[in-house]
């Protein structure tokens, strides 16, 4: 059953822009990305939007729908009441390039600042033995599709450009946690660095990031809070810190 849908789509570039009203047909089962594509093919040929997989797997189609950070390919049109107008705007935390496309290079810069995975010296390919239970913690964080919705929603940088320099954001807190909990990673002080260099201390555990994560990664409960707790521990108890690294090494065998 087709229905008429009233959209307000943000159109503009780096300098200026405004919401534009569009009326478009929507069919049963369609997601917001489908109707954006219909607008693009039939009315606004040059409407800019990012997407790839259309299956919630690549994290390209991030935007704000009625003010909420969402994946357009996973947002059902039917989830909005029949007569509701749907407002579609670009991610607010990042500079607009054009229409719904933003400049997310901030995130790639932050990725570069996190020291890479470091396996034990002398370990040969094929040698590692790890228990499923031990890899699962990091696997949760490796589900991340880099949609950057968590970055977009986090109030520390959402309206505070000045914080971007010193704050890596939730996506990269889980990256640090992933490496820290990785049974083969031997680099020390990851948690301490998260606190001192990547701005973990600026996070006040509002959990907004967890709420928007399309992969349902428990960013705050499983990454941020444990890292904060252990940073506190480690600051006071050097023996325990050593113990945790030794336990991690034992995981290798």
């Amino acid at each position: 059953m087709a229905r008429k849908l009233n959209l307000r789509i943000w159109r503009g570039n780096r300098e200026t822009g405004a919401l534009q009203n569009v009326t478009v047909e929507a069919n049963e089962g369609e997601v917001v990305l489908d109707v954006i594509h219909r607008v693009q093919a039939e009315q606004l040929n040059d409407l800019a939007v990012r997407w790839n997989c259309k299956a919630g797997k690549c994290g390209s189609c991030s935007m704000e729908i009625n003010g909420k950070p969402r994946l357009a390919c996973m947002t059902q049109v039917a989830s909005f009441p029949e007569d509701e107008e749907i407002t579609i705007t670009p991610l607010r935390a990042f500079p607009v390039i054009k229409d719904l496309v933003t400049d997310v290079s901030f995130n790639y810069k932050k990725a570069m600042e996190i020291p890479a995975f470091e396996p034990p010296v002398g370990m040969k390919p094929g040698e590692p033995r790890m228990a499923q239970m031990d890899v699962e913690r990091s696997q949760e964080f490796r589900k991340c599709i880099e949609c950057f919705l968590c970055q977009d929603t986090c109030h520390v940088i959402r309206d505070h450009e000045e914080n971007k320099e010193s704050f890596a954001g939730p996506r990269f807190f889980i990256r640090i946690a992933e490496l820290d909990m990785h049974p083969l990673d031997i680099l020390r002080n990851r948690k301490k660095k998260a606190q001192e260099e990547h701005g973990l201390g600026m996070c006040n555990i509002t959990k907004c990031c967890t709420e928007v994560c399309p992969e349902h990664i428990r960013i705050t409960d499983n990454a941020i809070i444990p890292m904060k707790e252990r940073v506190v521990d480690e600051k006071y108890d050097p023996i325990r810190w050593l113990g945790s690294k030794i336990r991690k090494r034992e995981g290798i065998l």
Partner: peptide
């Protein structure tokens, strides 16, 4: 595949940890 593991990949494991 083994080389990916040395670059940080975390595949699902068997009971023996392979």
């Amino acid at each position: 595949i083994w080389e990916l593991e040395m670059w940080g990949a975390l595949f699902d494991r068997t009971k023996e940890g392979k």
